[in-house]
Write a protein that binds this DNA or RNA. Sequence first.
DNA 1: GATGAATGAGGATTCATTCAT
DNA 2: CATGAATGAATCCTCATTCAT
Lengths: 221, 221, 221, 221
Amino acid sequence: MFTITPSLGYLVASIGGFMDATQSKLSNRERKKIEKRQRILDAAIKVIAKNGFQGTTVAEVASEAQVADGTIYLYFQNKDDLLITIFEETMDRFIADGVKEIAKRTSPTDKLRAIVDLHLSGLGSNEDLAAVFQIELRHSIHTMKQFSQTKLRDYFNIIEGVIEEAQRAGELRADLDPWTAVKVVFGALDEMATNWVLRKKEYALKDMAAPTIDILINGLK
Amino acid sequence: MFTITPSLGYLVASIGGFMDATQSKLSNRERKKIEKRQRILDAAIKVIAKNGFQGTTVAEVASEAQVADGTIYLYFQNKDDLLITIFEETMDRFIADGVKEIAKRTSPTDKLRAIVDLHLSGLGSNEDLAAVFQIELRHSIHTMKQFSQTKLRDYFNIIEGVIEEAQRAGELRADLDPWTAVKVVFGALDEMATNWVLRKKEYALKDMAAPTIDILINGLK
Amino acid sequence: MFTITPSLGYLVASIGGFMDATQSKLSNRERKKIEKRQRILDAAIKVIAKNGFQGTTVAEVASEAQVADGTIYLYFQNKDDLLITIFEETMDRFIADGVKEIAKRTSPTDKLRAIVDLHLSGLGSNEDLAAVFQIELRHSIHTMKQFSQTKLRDYFNIIEGVIEEAQRAGELRADLDPWTAVKVVFGALDEMATNWVLRKKEYALKDMAAPTIDILINGLK
Amino acid sequence: MFTITPSLGYLVASIGGFMDATQSKLSNRERKKIEKRQRILDAAIKVIAKNGFQGTTVAEVASEAQVADGTIYLYFQNKDDLLITIFEETMDRFIADGVKEIAKRTSPTDKLRAIVDLHLSGLGSNEDLAAVFQIELRHSIHTMKQFSQTKLRDYFNIIEGVIEEAQRAGELRADLDPWTAVKVVFGALDEMATNWVLRKKEYALKDMAAPTIDILINGLK
DNA sequence: GATGAATGAGGATTCATTCAT
DNA sequence: CATGAATGAATCCTCATTCAT
């Protein structure tokens, strides 16, 4: 049976907490702040997707978000923090969704299918976010020291957990190193997404889910 | 039998010519220029791998190459050109090597094995080059308009050719779209390399060749 | 009677509008911006007069104006724009003054006298501005493509209008091509000014008005 | 009778010497050097006319003259020296021609006519030279300290001599300050030339000689 | 809280000049 | 004599960040 690794436990909890916060009753002032914060994040995603992170000026994000330059700094520590926040909040959502979908299924192979589906449909539904994720973040993970690779590792852990479970259940070859298998799976998904971004999205990313799953499960079987 | 696609023919020829040129008799002055050019490129790879492309100053490349700042501009049009040249010359070498190795083999599956081997050993033998390739270039392909994706497409074409050949020979499933298969293969290789770079190379990249081939060929079979 | 040519009408209007704007109630912030802008322009005139346009660094203008380097770029697009603005705003003032003085007089010969007077006293009252006008601008009109010769043409048109009026009134020879006469008049004024600048102003420029008028009117009579 | 002012005497002598030098028998090597020097000067005039002095690179002059960059420095001290030489040698020719033509005529008014003719036809026959003279040199006289204004003064002296002679002969008004008259004359000629250069030479400059003389002599009469 | 004017450090690039060949 | 590769000082401009209003 698949169990959430300890390192993921806090996530579910914290996300839950976050959710609660947004749903609880907020004063008008607080609601406006949260909305403005989100407007800035959305503006950042849009602008970074177009110009790249380094090519993006704080001024342009501010303009796109319809706030003053200085306002950005009331919500984020600096330009880097903007990117880090985009990454972390999106990963939180991804991981939470992944955990939830996995919990719904019993067959490990189905769980793997669900991950592939979620990954590609999640990125495929927001072109700008996909561009930021596939291009800008990869870059920053390498450059920025502060960049938490924790979230990424969490995501990998989920996939690994599913694969190990499938191996134990006899649905996938047991002789494979699970970590290598994770990389092949993630690599295939990642390349699908990157390619889709670079090719300017001539097709729907989620349509690539079925053939990808086909090859992967076959290869791992 | 695998045949070099027309679009690749010129490459082999031009590289051959280039090789001849470097081996032919050169004046002292010409030899020095070629050496200095290479010294600058090597310095650029080293510095870009460490600081990222945007984080790299021309002055630092010059200093690393032990030339004056202005000298860089005698050999390259601008900072971008440095990156583009690194990409194109490396790809030329990769593609030429790939074409050569493929020509040596008759079994399509062996050809695929050779590609995986070459890809991972090629990047695994030069850590800095790998970092530039996996991180900085991916980023620049997205941002820079001038970036020729031709070389990348050439490389993809080679892989695609091998896969189609294998399908025709009955060694791989014929029902798969070759282009999707190419992406899965390239994606897996790419992720292996990126992961190796981000994980700071705790292991030898070429050692990942065997298990990767295993999964891929199995999945495509 | 002298009538403002259509192409000049907008000028008078716009200058009027501009004047109104500066006199209307402005917030403190707006007033400061206008003052700072003018301080930069004055600094630029001073420094360019001393070192020439190419010999002038943006840093020196900033230092003279007691602002940061970057501040220059909040008010002007680039270094060229600084020179163009000096030219255009000064010409606007010149032309507006000219039009006003001409309107006050009825005798065409008097109008010509007024132009000569204004031209020489205008330049003679600000040594630095004169240097920029006689030396640096002449150069830039030739080099910079963006340089609007419109203002200069406007000024020429005013002189031409007066000369034609004088010819119609029988005060000046009617057999002369007005355009040639304009060049002789402007040439004389221009040379007076240039000479004064190059000779380091050993005399008052406006004192040259009377003898210049004498020769010109005599020659055109 | 017109007499060469003392300050001009040396000129005629030195020019004579120069002439002799070029006409005397020269070794092949010496002839080639002189030719190369002239090729560089001509190239400089052409390039400076197109790009302005500051916009001109030594490399471009060298390329236009079909010599190596370093060769320029075998013939001229530095970039400035190139411009100064163009000015001085051209002025020498102008002044020598002027002196010669004046000597041929007896009527002071005719002498003035000759000066105007020579000035405009001299500049009008070489567009590039005219551009350099009217635009670039004016600028450099102001900026460069090393710039000898002696030659210009010599030229002015010639015109002044003719005007004084004409006044003594009763052909021109005696009440005018000759120096002012010189400026008006030179100013008119100069403006004609500058205007011709800036207007991209839509007409022949020498055709402006007659109407200009008309106004000037009338005005001075 | 929000603004946006001001700052000034930082970096790519140019080009006159030199000098080894 | 001539070459042209190499130098490196010099400068325009950008933009993240601050802070007075």
